[in-house]
Simulated assay, not measured.
Amino acid sequence: MTENLHNQGYLGWWDELRRRQPNLRLDCCASGGRRNDLETLRRAVPLHRTDYVGEPTSQQCHHYGLSQWVPYHGAGYIVGKSALPPPDCPPIPPPDKIDSYFFRSGMSPSLGISVDVKRDDYDYDFLRRLIAQFRQISPYYYGDFYPLTGYSLRNNVWIAWQYDRPDLGQGMVQAFRRHENNEESQTCKLNGLNPDAEYIVTDLDVNQPRTYTGRDLMETGLQITAKEKPAALIITYEMLK
């Protein structure tokens, strides 16, 4: 009964805040993502989905799992600092530099960035490029989410997912080759495309567009390759009109 009354008061308090301030935006980040229950998510979004920030494998897994249930959530990117990992998730030592693998592992509908801007030895041009890429692909986070690989905390695998915007005829794939993975390539079958249409597919790091049919991308699949490990790739696609 005590818990029931507590929850009624908690939700009623938020409802009254929203009644008084209809445009109020509420963040339900609390105790490491422990307020992501259904009734809270009717009223707020978790702008920071967990206190366990900075370790890339866990960030990828949080994104993979939560995106299947919660359409809007956030994470963070911290330069040179990492939380302690759980026993089954061996860490990658966080580099004291701007790093695309760590940055892209935290990319989500909402992204917070923590960088000591008093440091003059960071590659700020590279950071600006990563932020520009995030802004470029961020509209796709409002699309349909599709896992493209299985879920795993192991560091010898690929993990990947797709966001598709059928209203735009566009979307993206985020793919991660983890640091113990000896497979340079992974083939992913995409979802939700027009099988008879042609799509321009572009790796943001290579910028050499290729053309595929929707049927090829869904039935044969898209081969994703990373020569180095760990690696984080962002591949966009756009349907030709």
Rank of each mutant, 00 (worst) to 15 (best):
S67T: 10
N23M: 12
F176V: 02
Y124L: 13
F134Q: 11
V79Q: 00
R42E: 14
N207Y: 05
V201K: 03
R104I: 08
D144T: 12
C29M: 14
R104Q: 12
P166S: 07
G65N: 08
P230C: 11
A30D: 14
D116E: 12
P195L: 05
R49P: 00
F134Y: 15
R19G: 07
Y72F: 14
R34C: 09
D15Q: 14
A232C: 01
Y237M: 01
P147W: 06
Y212K: 10
S58K: 09
G33L: 06
T149Y: 01
E39H: 14
L222R: 04
E238Q: 10
L222S: 05
N191Q: 13
D15H: 11
D37T: 11
A160K: 05
T57K: 03
G106I: 01
I113V: 15
L148T: 01
L47E: 10
P94H: 09
R42F: 12
P93L: 05
G80Q: 02
V53I: 13
Q170A: 09
S110W: 12
R119C: 10
S185W: 06
F102T: 01
H179V: 04
A30L: 15
A232K: 00
P166E: 05
G76C: 11
Y140T: 00
P195M: 06
R20H: 09
N7Y: 15
I92W: 02
A30E: 14
G33H: 06
T50V: 02
T220G: 03
S31P: 03
Q208Y: 14
R20T: 08
H179R: 05
A83C: 11
P139N: 05
Q136F: 13
N155C: 13
L47G: 13
S58H: 10
Y237P: 00
V157D: 11
Q133D: 09
R49G: 02
Q68R: 02
H63Y: 13
P94D: 09
Y163M: 09
K229C: 11
R128Y: 07
D15S: 12
N181G: 07
G65M: 08
T202K: 05
G33A: 08
I98K: 00
H73K: 09
T187D: 03
A75L: 02
E228K: 04
H179K: 07
L11Q: 13
Q60S: 04
L24F: 13
I113W: 06
Y141N: 07
R128D: 12
R210Y: 13
R49Q: 12
I98M: 00
D99Q: 03
C28I: 07
L111D: 03
Q68W: 01
D88G: 08
V117M: 15
G76E: 15
N182R: 14
P46G: 04
E16V: 05
N7W: 15
E228W: 02
T187V: 15
C89W: 08
N155L: 09
W158H: 02
D164K: 03
I234M: 06
Q136W: 09
K118I: 09
D205T: 06
Y10F: 10
